[in-house]
């Protein structure tokens, strides 16, 4: 009893609590480092650092936000060591409002679709095809940088909307607009490059 009490006191952040956030941290690191081992190392170091300095955790911003803050430093350290400044943290490039005015092309001035979504044939099957993932990646990379960052933090890393806002300094209202546009763009890109393509392919095969 005494022993466990003594072990609890210096570190109020238990291993289990920290480990809960491992998947999110790993995805965050993976998207930036593009290397499984490096990502794993960065997360490991982050959790260790967090555990050692858990006294510094104030709990204001939420544990995950704090952990991501540490992870960012670890990732920055990595780039510094490998002197590949060019690639520096895709996530941290803040751009100046590019791609702000293009969303309206999706809709006419009365708010009706301009063109708009057609029905996709068997999207589930696409997930099993290697070629689909190349197209998916192209479409994702074609998003304007800041939009891509917001989308990836939400859908790939798995942060909650308010965590994404905290990470990116986006207001609530801007967040909703950005995600709406990101989904419209991705949808259109996938439709043009994959779903309509495979339709024509099939028609050609039948001909």
């Amino acid at each position: 009893m005494l022993l466990s009490a003594a072990m609890d006191t210096p570190n109020q952040l238990g291993e289990a609590l920290l480990a809960e956030h491992r998947p999110v941290l790993f995805r965050y690191a993976l998207l930036q480092l593009k290397d499984n081992e490096l990502a794993d190392d960065a997360v490991q170091e982050t959790l260790l650092a967090a555990w050692q300095s858990s006294a510094n955790f104030e709990g204001k911003a939420g544990l995950r936000t704090w952990l991501i803050g540490i992870l960012k430093h670890k990732i920055a350290d990595h780039w510094r060591r490998s002197a590949r400044e060019v690639v520096t943290a895709e996530f941290d490039q803040i751009d100046n409002g590019e791609g702000e005015a293009d969303e309206d092309a999706f809709f006419m001035s009365n708010g009706h679709w301009n063109g708009g979504p057609s029905t996709w044939n068997d999207p589930e099957a696409a997930l099993k095809q290697q070629e689909f993932w190349a197209i998916y990646e192209t479409c994702q990379n074609n998003l304007p940088p800041k939009m891509a960052k917001v989308f990836m933090l939400r859908e790939l890393v798995g942060l909650e909307a308010e965590e994404v806002c905290r990470e990116t300094g986006l207001s609530d209202a801007n967040y909703w607009v950005t995600m709406h546009r990101a989904r419209l763009r991705l949808r259109e890109c996938l439709e043009i490059r994959w779903f309509n393509q495979s339709k024509t392919k099939k028609e050609n095969n039948h001909a």
């Binding site: 708009g116 057609s118 029905t119 696409a126 997930l127 993932w133 998916y136 790939l156 991705l186 949808r187």
Partner: peptide, 20 residues
């Protein structure tokens, strides 16, 4: 078309999860 958008944005979420 909005129904398609609804289904497709759910599909995109699923694809994004698989992407990592």
């Amino acid at each position: 078309r909005c129904r398609n958008f609804q289904n497709q944005s759910q599909f995109i979420r699923k694809a994004a999860h698989r992407y990592t």
